[in-house]
């Protein structure tokens, strides 16, 4: 008997590492949360009594910041493939910074919304505003999980555990981060078109 069972004893599957597959399934379930919210949003809006307001222009800036961070995380991934560890660290830290900047931006925009008298809750609140807070808030929560994941990979990169032959974790974080960016882009466009 071999000490390790060879590849041939397993049915060839997707070729995707189970950890990555698990991550992808989790992304599906996260997406379902937002699918629920955005469809609830539309159903509710069509029932009337819906306060219309302009989306603060600042959301464009945070969107750009988040898209930039997608570019930097991709850069980190490419650098890892080329075993350029210095660049990997730099790019990951940049991504982390941009992610944080995005969150701060979203938070400031909440303040701006309050100044516009768009409230999350209370007597003056309308579901149109409450939904905006929920969508940004729940997305923000997931972005925090992304930042934690990034931190773990940053630590790995400082321990020399990220390189062209150990691409699993950096690959996963890249996928997750792109997902969070795409999710936000979807929400932003959705809000632009349906406020």
């Amino acid at each position: 008997m071999d000490s390790y069972e060879s590849l041939s004893t397993k049915q060839p599957a997707t070729g995707i590492h189970p950890a990555r597959f698990l991550l992808m399934l989790m992304m599906v379930s996260i997406f379902m949360i937002f699918a629920a919210y955005t469809s609830a949003y539309i159903v509710r809006r069509n029932e009337g009594n819906w306060l219309e307001f302009n989306l603060p222009a600042g959301f464009l800036y945070t969107t750009v910041v988040l898209l930039l961070s997608s570019a930097t995380v991709q850069w980190a991934w490419l650098a890892a493939r080329k075993n350029d560890l210095k660049q990997v660290r730099l790019a990951l830290l940049l991504t982390l910074g941009l992610g944080l900047a995005f969150l701060v931006g979203q938070y400031l925009l909440w303040g701006q919304l309050v100044d516009q008298r768009i409230f999350f809750a209370g007597t003056d609140a309308n579901p149109s505003g409450s939904f905006l807070y929920v969508l940004t808030g729940v997305h923000g929560f997931h972005l925090i999980t992304g930042l934690i994941f990034l931190l773990i990979v940053v630590r790995k990169s400082f321990n020399y555990q990220v390189h062209s032959r150990q691409m699993l974790s950096i690959g996963n974080v890249t996928i997750y981060w792109h997902f969070l960016g795409a999710l936000w882009l979807y929400l932003y466009l959705f809000l632009l078109l349906n406020h």
Binding site: S29, M32, A35, A121, A125, P127
Partner: peptide, 21 residues
Amino acid sequence: FPVLFSAALLLIFDRSFGTSF
């Protein structure tokens, strides 16, 4: 299940935070 989670969260907001979903 994520959809139930969404609904439960909105209900929590209605119950404890004063929203009106």
